[in-house]
């Protein structure tokens, strides 16, 4: 059976409009580009605060270091998943990639929190200190999310909300990891709650806005 004429005429007209295109760089390369921006911010914070206080806290409570490593791996894997989800045909199961490191991050943070409950010798975050953490994470997540969205502008995520959740998770995890450099105190219940709230806000805002920001090609 002959195909209908409509596709034939459309194919011909699309052929007439064909121009060479620049392929989307691989997901790992775009992840690396975003991590470069995170590394620049980290270098700036290290120059300002020095690595001493962070190392001191880490040696006193290794679980904080483990939580920090978990946050860094979560940022890397969530960004990678976001870029991969921007390519049609790739599996949505990439959203599970950041899960192990997310569990490590949350688990190690919770362990630090329990330690403070059992033997509260460390400096416990007061409300205003905890709210500083909230402001730090959210205000740093905004430009980091914006950069990820900009890097995804030529992509075509067919599940934009999942991609947006990955963007939110990557930027919130990177912000929380960067906060480790200038954190003045050990993780406690109030601080952990603030961190969780900040991460949730960043992920939620990204999820709500994701559909509108991430699919210009499908409109």
């Amino acid at each position: 059976m002959a195909e209908p004429r409509l596709p034939e005429s459309l194919i011909q007209s699309l052929g007439e409009q064909l121009t060479p295109v620049r392929r989307l760089p691989p997901a790992w390369l775009r992840t690396l580009g975003w991590l470069l921006a995170v590394a620049v911010i980290a270098a700036g914070l290290l120059m300002h605060y020095g690595a001493g206080p962070m190392m001191h806290r880490w040696s006193a409570a290794p679980d904080i270091a483990i939580a920090g490593v978990g946050a860094v791996i979560t940022a890397v894997s969530a960004a990678w998943a976001a870029f991969t989800l921007g390519v049609p045909g790739r599996s949505w199961r990439w959203v599970w990639l950041p899960l192990p490191s997310l569990l490590l991050w949350v688990g190690a943070s919770g362990l630090g929190c329990m330690r403070d409950w059992l033997g509260p010798t460390a400096h416990i975050a007061k409300f205003n200190e905890a709210s500083d953490c909230l402001i730090f994470i959210i205000s740093l997540s905004v430009p980091l999310s914006a950069l990820l969205i900009w890097l995804l502008r030529r992509a075509c995520p067919l599940r934009p909300v999942l991609a947006a959740i990955m963007i939110g998770l990557a930027s919130a995890a990177a912000s929380a990891a960067l906060l480790e450099i200038c954190h003045a105190f050990a993780v406690a219940a109030t601080d952990l709650l603030t961190h969780a709230m900040a991460v949730a806000i960043v992920v939620l805002v990204n999820a709500v806005m994701g559909g509108r920001l991430l699919q210009p090609a499908l409109k």
Binding site: L6, P7, L10, I11, L14, Q17, V21, R22, R23, L24, P26, G86, V87, P88, G89, R154, A155, C156, L158, A217, L218
Partner: peptide, 29 residues
């Protein structure tokens, strides 16, 4: 659907990675 998909393929043809399956890419769109 054929018409809309062909127009979409035209707009996002730069997202196809030749090292991966064309059919999977097209079927997703």
């Amino acid at each position: 659907v054929v018409q809309e998909t062909l127009l979409t393929v035209h707009r996002v043809r730069h997202t196809y990675d030749p090292s991966r399956s064309y059919d999977a890419w097209l079927s997703a769109l």
